[in-house]
């Protein structure tokens, strides 16, 4: 199973791209674990996780074709 991830703001500096594909992530917790292994700087970053355009506040099962968004807070005005 492939999960598509879109990345916003300065998280793109960590990932090196605004898109990413992760294989075999069954739920959001294991996805995050996998991402933090690949990109340790995510550990110290604040961001929200959305599954199919909905904010996720607890571990959520992923379906085939789920699209995940990682979005940091912005401070500028």
């Amino acid at each position: 199973m492939k999960t598509n991830i879109i990345v916003f703001g300065q998280l793109t500096d960590i990932i090196g791209n605004d898109k990413l594909v992760v294989n075999n992530a069954g739920d959001t917790n294991s996805l995050l674990e996998e991402l933090k292994k690949g990109y340790p700087a995510l550990e110290d970053s604040k961001f929200i996780l959305a599954v199919d355009k909905k904010l996720v506040t607890e571990n959520t099962l992923l379906n085939t074709n789920s699209t995940i968004a990682l979005m940091p807070p912005f401070s500028g005005g």
Binding site: F8, G9, M71, F74, S75, G77
Partner: peptide, 10 residues
């Protein structure tokens, strides 16, 4: 609420 950074805004 609104906020901006570089090329992106919320």
């Amino acid at each position: 609420f609104g906020a901006v950074s570089q090329w992106e805004g919320q």
